[in-house]
């Protein structure tokens, strides 16, 4: 089980992501980045898709990154990482880089750069089996360009391109299940985590970087501007996304599924929605139907995941008492 002290010890040893960037006050993304980078013991090389993280951390001539970092464009972070990783293998093969000093390749992309425009290059890279970890920081819309709807935007959310209005209750479509799409590539590790559960995320990262071939982790991040909550509530709102079952935490290891966190008390989705301005309109009388739809869909999905969890649970080493996650990698 990872501890926060281990993360701190790693950061004390090497501060991989520095401050002084221009990510917003109360932004959830740095929590993803620091938890991921501080959970990896080997040197890392980072590839970043265009988006908030990239723009806000690398304004020339400055950089927040104290590790090798590459950005090419919006839709191609996974493809660019394929190139870096292939060059690494070529240079090791030809004796130009040491074979006994492993490097971990990590890609960060937002939901726009991953669910939407970057899905093809991610799919290609997952299918080819490059050795890398792709981390999607999912804040559920194109926040960098000013809160436009993406395929990660939840049903009913008001964004600048799916605004609520006299005849609209916000986004009319369901969000895409990207984690399931990644899983369909039959890679050895896929996980879903959230910034409120750093131990869960850290644990998943440690497991993901150990598997053979690509790994994918979808992390729910938050955006106070786009979600319209108080900056100080960034972690709380993510916590509620998990506790309402809106964002279940799970992993799929070599095709076997398990929930990595089961909330002690399941909170009605309304509580989470009420915290965020983007859902405010759902509480108008005429939108009551939409609220019911949202709650029902969450419960249906949870039942489906619980069934998968029951079916596959025997393949994992049993959890210890009061432990909802584990670093034990052995599968039974």
């Amino acid at each position: 089980m990872p501890t926060i002290k281990q993360l701190a010890a790693n950061e004390a040893k090497e501060k991989r992501f520095r401050g002084g960037h221009s990510l917003c006050s109360g932004c959830g993304i740095p929590i993803v980045v620091r938890t991921v980078l501080n959970s990896i013991e080997t040197p890392v090389v980072v590839v970043n898709a265009t988006g908030c993280l990239e723009v806000a951390t690398t304004r020339f001539p400055n950089t927040a990154w104290n590790v090798p970092w590459l950005h090419v464009a919006f839709e191609n972070a996974a493809a660019a990482a394929s190139g870096v990783e292939s060059a690494y293998r070529a240079l090791v093969k030809r004796g130009k880089l040491p074979a006994d000093e492993p490097v971990t390749f990590v890609v960060f992309g937002g939901d726009g750069g991953t669910y939407d425009i970057g899905l093809q290059s991610l799919s290609g890279a997952l299918e080819r089996g490059h050795q890398f970890l792709y981390v999607c920081y999912d804040n559920e819309a194109y926040m960098n360009t000013g809160i436009q709807r993406s395929s990660a935007t939840p049903f009913g959310a008001s964004t600048t391109t799916s605004p609520e209005g006299k005849i609209s209750f916000g986004k009319a479509q369901q969000r895409k299940d990207l984690t399931a799409i990644a899983e369909a590539h039959h890679v050895n590790y896929v996980g879903q985590s959230a910034i409120s559960h750093w131990h869960d995320l850290s644990d998943k990262v440690k497991r993901a970087v150990e598997v053979d071939g690509p790994a994918f982790i979808n992390v729910l991040s938050t955006c106070q501007l786009g979600w319209r909550h108080e900056p100080r509530e960034a972690v709380k709102v993510a916590q509620l996304a998990v506790d309402t079952l809106f964002w279940p935490l799970y992993e799929v290891v070599k095709g076997r599924f398990r929930l990595t966190h089961i909330p002690e008390e399941i909170v009605p989705i309304e509580t989470w929605l009420r915290m965020q301005g983007r859902f405010k309109h759902l509480f108008k009388e005429e939108n009551a139907g939409a609220l019911e739809v949202i709650q029902q869909q969450i419960f249906d999905e949870w039942e489906r995941l619980k069934e998968r969890d029951r079916n596959d649970r025997a393949h994992f080493a049993p959890l210890q008492k009061d432990q909802t996650f584990t670093t034990e990698f052995e599968m039974v």
């Binding site: 926060i4 002290k5 993360l7 701190a8 520095r18 401050g19 002084g20 960037h21 990510l23 917003c24 006050s25 109360g26 932004c27 959830g28 993304i29 740095p30 929590i31 620091r34 938890t35 910034i195 750093w198 960034a234 972690v235």
Partner: peptide, 10 residues
């Protein structure tokens, strides 16, 4: 150290 990890800057 939760504040340390959750701080969006440093």
């Amino acid at each position: 150290l939760i504040c340390w990890l959750d701080c969006p800057d440093t």
